[in-house]
Amino acid sequence: MNGPEQVDMARARVFGEVAVVYDAARPGYSDALVSDVLDYAAPGGGWALEVGAGTGKATVPFAERGTRLVCVEPDPRMAEVLRRNTARFPGVRVHVGGFEEWQPGGRRFGLLLAAASWHWVDPERRWDLACAALAPGGAVALFWNPQGVRDPGVHAALAEVDARHGMTGTPHGAPASAYGDAAGDWAGLPGWPEDECRRDGRFADVRGVRHREDRYYGTERYLGYLASLSRYRVLSPGVRERVLADTGRVLDAHGGGIAMEQFSDLFLARVG
């Protein structure tokens, strides 16, 4: 995904259809990003809250660092994989349900994190829900991992495929050169939460951090990655098959894969 998408609840609930593929194909998060979050939040031995934990792409690296987590995941199929992936961590608790319906039950957390999921939370309520869940001084850490295509020729060929099938906002939708230098500069795409958070007025010490890393996908893995994305899941099976087949032919014609630059963008803020 090239940054957050607009809230569409039909799309927000399609990931469970391919939970295992999602877990295998989706990129994870760097150790440096995890360190940034923990250094900022300094949760100590307290519990953190993860919103939209999915299959645990972010949960596992935080749990490996000793963070105890309550994970809220709306899709039971994703939660099943999440439980398997975190079974070795006694400090991980999984709650199946939406963040909008979840109740903290008097608990207050020192850290709320959301990995490529905050944009699925109701925009009218998400900052209220965060404040209700956080202790005074608690931190919000929201992060995404948009990507850009390194080879202009590959990008141009894939753009032709996307245009032919009416696809927009795909992970290969922008060249790496189109991204700016700052966190949240997503080649002109909206969704970075800073303005919304500042308008809320209850948060301070707002920061943005960007990490970059090269990533290469072979054709099969990249097609699996695409197949796990909501914009592909909502296509009819026949259309999805044609789009992925055409995409695969482009990658095979360019060496059997795609080289990307991943921008791990982290938003941090602290509730008063």
Rank of each mutant, 00 (worst) to 15 (best):
R13D: 14
E124N: 10
G238Q: 09
W47V: 12
Q6C: 08
G224P: 08
C197P: 05
R212V: 09
V51N: 01
N2G: 10
D200S: 06
R240H: 05
A227Y: 08
A245Y: 05
R198T: 09
T55C: 07
A163C: 09
G272P: 06
R84Y: 06
A19V: 07
E213R: 10
R233C: 13
E213Q: 10
G137K: 03
A130C: 15
E160Q: 11
D185M: 06
Q103G: 10
A139V: 08
Q147N: 08
R88Y: 00
E100R: 07
G255C: 11
L158K: 00
V140M: 15
A132V: 11
M9Y: 12
V81L: 05
V149D: 00
H155M: 03
Q262G: 13
D246E: 15
A19H: 09
D162R: 02
L189I: 09
T170C: 11
L38S: 06
A116I: 02
D39S: 13
E124L: 10
L158A: 05
G256K: 00
H95P: 00
L111C: 04
A79W: 03
R207C: 10
Y232F: 15
G52T: 01
R207I: 04
D265E: 02
D214Q: 14
E124P: 11
S264D: 14
G106D: 04
R93K: 14
D252S: 11
E50R: 01
R231N: 15
A163R: 14
T67C: 14
I258C: 03
C131Q: 11
R88E: 14
Y179C: 01
A12R: 07
R207L: 10
G255L: 05
A157T: 05
A141R: 03
A133V: 07
R68A: 14
H172W: 02
G66A: 04
R26W: 07
A24Q: 14
M78V: 09
V271D: 02
E196H: 10
L113G: 05
D39V: 07
F15E: 05
N145T: 08
G52M: 02
P104M: 04
G16P: 01
E220N: 10
Y217L: 01
G153A: 13
Y179A: 00
V72M: 02
F203A: 07
D122V: 11
D75A: 09
E160L: 11
D265W: 00
E64C: 12
R242M: 12
G137N: 06
H165W: 15
V239N: 04
A259I: 03
E50A: 04
Q147I: 06
L229C: 13
G66V: 08
G180M: 00
